[in-house]
Simulated assay, not measured.
Amino acid sequence: MKIIEVANVESAPNPHGVDARKIYDTDNALTVHMTIKPGQSLKKHMTPVDVFFYVLEGEGIVEIGDEKEKVKKDTIIDSPAKVPHTWYNESDKNLRILVVKVPKPKESTRLL
């Protein structure tokens, strides 16, 4: 059994400048715990694989393709491969999400 405490995983540098911690990284899948602070947003990008997001805490705005929606805690959002997407935190509280990529990408995410 492998148990990982998010607080013990270091945040990895990323082009978005947010707290992003790889908490599950195997040959088959990748999961990142991301904290987007008030006023922060991600740069629009595309992933080469399907992604789903699970909102752990807070609320934010997710944009996938031409759709933009306000979402809150305990929501799952599907983001198909190669469709531009981004997140915005316009609230006054942290937005914490799990980012799950399946299968684990073999190519890099592309910033737009």
Rank of each mutant, 00 (worst) to 15 (best):
M1L: 01
M1A: 07
M1C: 01
M1S: 10
K2C: 02
K2N: 12
I3Q: 10
I3H: 07
I4N: 09
I4R: 12
I4D: 05
E5R: 15
V6N: 10
A7K: 15
A7R: 14
S11M: 07
S11K: 11
A12I: 05
P13G: 08
P13E: 14
H16F: 14
V18H: 09
V18C: 13
V18E: 08
D19C: 04
A20D: 01
A20V: 01
R21W: 11
K22Q: 01
I23S: 10
Y24L: 15
Y24D: 11
Y24S: 14
Y24V: 14
D25K: 08
T26K: 09
D27A: 14
D27K: 13
N28T: 05
N28W: 05
A29Y: 10
L30D: 10
V32L: 13
H33Q: 02
M34P: 03
M34V: 13
T35Y: 09
T35K: 14
I36T: 07
K37C: 02
P38N: 04
S41N: 14
S41F: 09
S41C: 07
L42D: 09
K43A: 15
K44D: 11
H45W: 05
M46P: 07
M46T: 15
T47V: 12
T47D: 15
T47P: 06
V49M: 11
V49W: 09
V51Y: 08
V51M: 15
F52L: 14
F52Q: 10
Y54T: 11
Y54D: 07
V55H: 01
V55F: 03
V55W: 02
V55E: 07
L56C: 04
L56I: 07
E57Y: 08
G58P: 06
G58R: 08
E59G: 09
E59R: 12
E59M: 06
G60F: 04
G60E: 02
V62N: 04
V62A: 13
E63L: 00
E63C: 03
D66S: 13
K68C: 08
E69C: 03
E69P: 00
E69L: 10
K70N: 03
V71R: 06
K72W: 01
D74L: 07
I77H: 04
I77T: 02
S79V: 13
S79Y: 03
P80A: 01
P80D: 01
P80Q: 02
A81R: 13
K82Q: 12
K82Y: 11
K82A: 11
K82R: 14
K82D: 15
V83C: 08
H85C: 05
H85A: 02
H85P: 05
H85Q: 11
T86A: 08
W87P: 01
W87E: 05
W87V: 06
W87N: 00
Y88L: 07
Y88S: 05
Y88Q: 09
N89E: 01
N89W: 00
E90T: 05
S91L: 01
D92E: 14
D92S: 12
D92G: 08
D92L: 06
K93Q: 11
R96G: 00
R96A: 10
R96I: 15
I97E: 03
I97D: 02
L98Y: 10
V99S: 15
V100W: 07
V100E: 10
V102Y: 09
V102T: 13
P103L: 00
K104M: 05
K106Y: 04
K106N: 01
K106S: 05
K106V: 04
E107K: 13
S108Y: 03
S108A: 11
T109Q: 10
L112V: 12
L112F: 06
L112D: 11
